[in-house]
C-alpha cells in the first residue's frame, strides 16, 4: 500500500480509537459507554485490516462488535441502567490517573524496545487470511484449539447453573 495513504488511514483509525476509548472511560450514561466501545472495536478492526490481518478483523467485527456488545446493550436495557452514574471521588480519580499514567510510562520505556527487534523473515509482509490462520490453528496449535471447546462448554454449563440457582 502507498505509505502516505497508509499513514493517513493509521492516524484516522488511531484518533478514532483513542476518542472512542475516552468515551468508554468517561461517558456518564452506561449505554453511551457501550456504544463507544462498539465504535472503538470498529476502529481497531480497521487497524487490523491495515495490518493485513483480515480474519481477526472480521472476527472482531462479527463476534465482538456484533455479538458480545449486543449482549452488553441487552443487559444495560434489561436492568434499565439509563441513569447517569455518580462519578468517582476526585481523589480516587487522581490516584487512578496516576496509576494509569505510570503503567503507560512503564509500557513505553520497557515494552517499546521490543518493536525494534528485526523481523525473522526476509519478507515481513504476511497476510492473515482464513487459510493461513486455519493451517496454523489445525497444526501447531491443535491442542489449545481443541481445549477452547472445553472452555466454551464450561462457560455454557456455568451460565445454566447460575440461571437455575436464581430461580430456586
Amino acid at each position: 500500500m502507498n505509505p502516505v495513504l497508509e499513514a493517513v488511514f493509521f492516524y484516522l483509525f488511531a484518533g478514532g480509537a483513542i476518542a472512542a476509548a475516552l468515551g468508554v472511560a468517561f461517558a456518564r450514561v452506561p449505554l453511551y459507554a457501550v456504544l463507544s466501545l462498539v465504535l472503538a472495536m470498529g476502529f481497531i478492526a480497521g487497524l487490523f485490516a491495515l495490518l493485513q490481518a483480515t480474519l481477526v478483523a472480521w472476527i472482531l467485527l462479527l463476534v465482538y462488535a456484533g455479538a458480545v456488545l449486543v449482549l452488553f446493550v441487552f443487559v444495560v436495557m434489561l436492568l434499565q441502567l439509563d441513569k447517569a452514574e455518580p462519578g468517582a471521588h476526585p481523589a480516587s480519580k487522581a490516584m487512578a490517573a496516576l496509576v494509569a499514567g505510570g503503567v503507560f510510562a512503564v509500557l513505553m520505556t520497557l515494552g517499546r524496545p521490543v518493536t525494534g527487534i528485526p523481523a525473522m523473515n526476509a519478507d515481513p509482509q504476511i497476510s492473515g487470511g482464513t487459510e493461513a490462520i486455519a493451517r496454523l490453528l489445525f497444526n501447531r496449535y491443535l491442542v489449545p484449539f481443541e481445549l477452547t471447546s472445553v472452555l466454551l462448554l464450561a462457560a455454557v454449563l456455568s451460565i445454566v447453573v447460575l440461571a437455575k440457582k436464581a430461580k430456586a
Partner: peptide, 29 residues
C-alpha cells in the same frame, strides 16, 4: 508507520482502559 506507532497506540488504549477500570463504580462498565 512502524510497529512502534501501533505499540504507542495500544499502550495508550490500555492506560485509558485501566483508568476506566479503576474509576468506574458500575460493575458492567
Amino acid at each position: 508507520i512502524g510497529p512502534e506507532h501501533y505499540f504507542t497506540l495500544s499502550a495508550a488504549l490500555f492506560a485509558i482502559g485501566l483508568f476506566g477500570l479503576l474509576t468506574r463504580r458500575n460493575s458492567l462498565l
